[in-house]
Design a protein around this nucleic acid. Structure first.
Lengths: 216, 216
DNA sequence: ATTTACTTGTGAAATTATTGACAAGTGTTA
DNA sequence: TAACACTTGTCAATAATTTCACAAGTAAAT
């Protein structure tokens, strides 16, 4: 599709990059300077070839024969590729239990995501930790003014589509959807569905008679 | 790998089944009796071939030419395949923000999962909604006694491995891991990692220059 | 300084998954 | 009752992904 400079990174490779990153950081903190694909593969329970392939596609840094990859450079490269270097601001709509959890989840800042503020129809609390909760009326105005392009939907399924429409209107380009519905959006808008039911299906299936092959 | 009676259902197919289920249920509630693969595919934004393939693998019910699939039978079959028919009990460890969210998430019961109780090192609240919170000391005893086989880990990453060990010792067979670490477990134990970072990577990547092709 | 052993990176092969084509069969209509 | 239109289900073809094999190159050892 887009065959210019950018290499063709597969979805499966892309999903593995964050776990490489986690592993590399722990090793760096242990004082390790170089890591080979073989060592990384062992730790991640993958084949070395998968690791080499993933890194060769996503990364510019070249590994040194006999030594492996320079850990620091590798981390920087992966972070740059994933866009973790420039913090991305996001807004969240639906401050129920799930919304609160995401608002208070500390881990996102490690991944370059910064949830600025939460919105809801009725504001019961002024803030979750340091994140303010605002009325949904203020969504469009604030989002446009702050030039935010990522929206997180943690409403119930009934409200989700309406919120999505509002987000699109307000200039949101990527939606992380936690509501169990299929959203209809213009095709230039990216939607990533976090489908808890699908995850459960995989787990549940593993416990029944007809397992799928391989690991999950 | 396991080429006996059980058909080889792919991971991608398996993940789509819950969304079929959601769609089918809404249509059933609208009074629809039969649905063809073409209609389903349109609603899910898939090709009819994918739908037919998925259903033919997972389902015993045969579609009727000219009519399509009998919605009620299809729902029953998918639910049976996914194991939603017999409710599965689970326990959760780590009652932080994420743990609370999962404990209070109403949606799981639709998918056959029933989180019985939450455990934590220190019990600050006696319960979340109707779910009791207990001290981790009582984990092994209660889990064994109630014969529970699914464990959910929502602790921080430091505690996760230790909790996983404890779960295995207590007879847990499937672990839904929300902590950002790779767990080491015996190979007969199923681990499903819910990697928020990986999800974010996909979303984040879509906003940058080097997009992957296709939809997410 | 030279050899050795080991690791990267690339292009090709094998495996797996997705998509397409078509025969078989059923409800509908005339 | 017979012809038609439409949908399923399977087999074949295409596309994608994973795995293999090997040349090239470098740190370490001699």
């Amino acid at each position: 599709m887009n065959d210019e400079i950018c290499r063709n990174i597969s979805l499966t490779s892309l999903r593995r990059l964050p776990s490489y990153l986690r592993y590399l950081k722990t090793q760096r903190d242990n004082g390790i300077d170089y890591l080979s694909s073989i060592i990384i593969a062992q730790a991640m329970e993958l084949s070395p070839m998968v690791v080499k392939k993933d890194l060769s596609i996503a990364i510019k840094v070249e590994g040194k024969p006999k030594l492996g990859y320079h850990v620091d450079s590798l981390i920087k490269d992966i972070e740059m590729f994933l866009g973790y270097d420039n913090k991305k601001d996001a807004v969240l709509v639906g401050v129920g239990s799930l919304g609160k959890a995401l608002l208070s989840y500390e881990g996102f800042k490690n991944y370059g995501l910064n949830i600025i503020v939460g919105f809801d129809k009725e504001v019961n609390e002024p803030a979750i930790l340091d994140k303010k909760i605002l009325s949904i009326d203020k969504f469009s105005n604030l989002t446009k003014r702050m030039n935010i392009h990522i929206g997180i939907i943690t409403t119930n399924k009934e409200a989700a589509q309406e919120i999505a429409n509002m987000m699109v209107e307000a200039g949101i380009k990527a939606i992380w959807n936690w509501a169990p519905v299929k959203l209809s959006v213009p095709e230039d808008i990216v939607v990533k569905n976090e489908d808890l039911a699908a995850s459960l299906a995989v787990l549940s299936n593993s416990l029944s008679d007809h397992q799928i092959g391989g690991s999950i």
